[in-house]
Amino acid sequence: MNAVLLAADGVNVAQNIGFGIIAAGMIFAALCVVSTKNVVHAALWLVVVLGGVAAQYVLAAAEFVAVSQVMVYIGAVMVLFLFGIMLTRAKIGEESGLNNKGWAIGIPVAVVLFGLLAWAVLDTYGDDTIAEPQLTGANNESTVDIADRVLSPYLAPFFGMTFVLLAAAIGAIVLARKD
């Protein structure tokens, strides 16, 4: 799928090749996440997917989001997952019955959904090319822009976010503590 698109493009080969390789790896890893029989392996494959997403962010000139992705997901969320797995005493190893009885119904649903999304995307953006992302390392304008946006027009959502995080932290403590 992507190979076809790559061939049709050819604006920046290196970038497209990079995208393709990472994308292929991500899709493979994502499939492993939902198909492996080992819970810990699933978590580790998820790391690959999330790292790939971070790499795609870098390609899309969103360095700050990429760094946040690495720190929040790979740094924090994955640790949470691993602790969750350990604390729920999942078997470290293969486990039968990780899937539902009716798991097969997921396949048609996913395929139909993908067909629909792909059709919508190609119908709308099929021929659009995007401007060369400026991979500026030193003069990182986008980070400054993000800071300005977050602290000026999106200040209220930002504050809202802080309350959500606080509530989530307290909620998680209340739920998980033993008393």
Partner: peptide, 8 residues
Amino acid sequence: MLAANFLL
């Protein structure tokens, strides 16, 4: 780069 790449 095609816009659709990321979206797909």
